[in-house]
Nucleic acid binder design. Structure first.
Lengths: 138, 138
DNA sequence: GAGCGAAACGATAATCGTTATCAAGAACTA
DNA sequence: TAGTTCTTGATAACGATTATCGTTTCGCTC
């Protein structure tokens, strides 16, 4: 055989997406990331942005939230289980852990005869900066 | 003036949607409800289904969840604050209250300087029935 | 380096859920 | 019954995401 099958390759495009994700703090939509990449001159197709993001999510290096409108947001994050506190104004995200909440969710589910339990917890609010200067900082 | 302005009318279509929502227990998507209505011979347009559902949500008589895929589910529910335990198989929904969780969410947000706090909590699992008869009952 | 097979790219089209449009119809009240 | 005004609903528009598929690129070996 001439090439290693089943490997994951290092491409320029993936690098660009990763780099951008590390720079922006907070959650961004795929479309936003795509535009940001174009602005900075990185030539990456929209398809590739989606593919890369999905890849990161599958690998556990990123996770997603859904805006009320249904749009999907992505962010890099630690691989351990946690939840997010998200600013409505600027999208700033704080990772929070809540062992008590995890237990509560599992108990409630068990009490009702549910198995194979998972949960989604998101906290939304306005961060100090946005509350102060009514305009959402970048 | 000949008619009372700003009133909300009782139409056949709204009645059909309401009736269906009361019959099915569990969350359904607008598209599902639309199909169910057609099956039972109720002539209601898709637009009207969406409109009626949105109306119910605004009035606090129904609320919504979003599936991982982004599709929006609707269900009638009590107007007090609560969360949901949803079966992945059949959509059965149990309303659960968790004062402790509410407090936790508010505290976490406050600790991080967030104000105007809200949260989203959904628990997913497989209900006893679905776990037993591997096929999701209606 | 040249060659090669597999993986990745990306422009475009397709999909899917949802929302807007707007003329025709129905529910109220006087 | 007449007159409004709200509703309806077929259709088009929309926005995000996914599939298609020919082309490009990577990583490797010779």
């Amino acid at each position: 055989m001439k090439a290693t099958p089943n490997a994951t390759r290092n491409t320029r495009q993936r690098g660009e997406v990763m780099a951008l994700l590390q720079e922006v703090e907070g959650a961004r939509s795929a479309q936003q990331l795509y535009l940001l990449l174009r602005e900075r001159g990185a030539k990456v197709g929209l398809t590739t942005v989606y593919r890369t993001l999905q890849m990161l999510v599958d690998a556990g290096d990123a996770d997603t939230t859904r805006l009320p409108g249904g749009e999907q947001l992505f962010r890099l994050c630690s691989p351990t289980h946690h939840h997010h506190l998200v600013c409505r104004g600027c999208g700033k995200t704080v990772e929070v852990a809540g062992p008590a909440v995890e237990r509560w969710a599992d108990e409630v589910a068990a009490d009702n005869g549910f198995t194979d339990v998972g949960h989604t917890i998101e906290i939304f609010g306005t961060c100090r900066d946005c509350a102060a200067g009514q305009a959402g900082p970048a």
